[in-house]
């Protein structure tokens, strides 16, 4: 219930109505949305029990390594209801054609694959918030100084997931494990997102906010 309360309000992408609906506008909207999501994710992380007990340096290392996993998990969860469409925001849904036009075919295929996996599992909101908090603490950053503290947080959230599933689905003892086994695909998908955003940055021409650039370069 703590995690449900910590869940941020949804963001809107608000594509610029004065700009023609081009690939350029799609990418600009996407990068602007990602920047605002980042601010929200950083604020959200502070509400995850124990996160603020990490040193500031470790909080930074953790977020720098997992922010895209947290972001992508949210997008995949929002996309559960629609096949082959990626819901970056309620007012910014990219189907296959729009994705192709913007050069986002591979990213959208990857997020759709993750969303399909969650759809098959019938992932619900409680499980989604649990998994997102676990993804935060599942960092493998080599810059973490006190890995034991991060591991302790991870164990705590893992335990909470086990208890949740034990209460709600005592007939399905594999449920928690099945959810945790989606984490490799989440990491792979976030890797795809990183490659995509990085190549947009390298090509240039799409405005990117400072925080987004800072995290992309981290």
């Amino acid at each position: 219930s703590h995690l449900l309360v910590a869940e941020p309000e949804k963001l809107f992408a608000m594509p610029d109505p004065l700009q023609p609906d081009t690939a350029q506008r799609t990418l600009t909207t996407l990068c602007d949305l990602a920047d605002r999501e980042l601010v929200v994710i950083i604020g959200w992380a502070k509400h995850i029990p124990g996160f603020l007990s990490l040193s500031l340096a470790d909080q930074m290392s953790v977020l720098q390594s997992v922010w895209l996993e947290v972001l992508v998990l949210g997008v995949a969860y929002r996309s559960l209801g629609c096949e082959d469409e990626v819901v970056f925001a309620e007012d910014f849904v990219l189907d296959e054609d729009m994705s192709r036009a913007a050069g986002l075919t591979e990213l959208n295929a990857a997020i759709s694959q993750l969303a399909r996996r969650f759809r098959t599992l019938n992932l619900d909101r409680e499980e989604f918030v649990m998994l997102k908090a676990i993804a935060l603490t599942n960092s493998d950053s080599i810059y973490i100084e006190d890995m034991e503290a991060v591991q302790k947080l991870r164990d705590l959230l893992h335990q909470a997931l086990l208890e949740l599933e034990c209460q709600r689905r005592p007939d399905d003892p594999q449920r928690a494990g099945r959810l945790l086994l989606t984490l490799p695909l989440l990491r792979q998908t976030a890797g795809r997102a990183l490659t995509t955003f990085y190549s947009i940055k390298t090509r240039g021409g799409v405005p990117m906010h400072k925080l987004f650039l800072e995290m992309l370069e981290a």
Binding site: L56, L63, E214
Partner: peptide, 15 residues
Amino acid sequence: KEKHKILHRLLQNST
């Protein structure tokens, strides 16, 4: 840390 100024600042904000 100088390179990650904004993240640093956002984490230090009390919100």
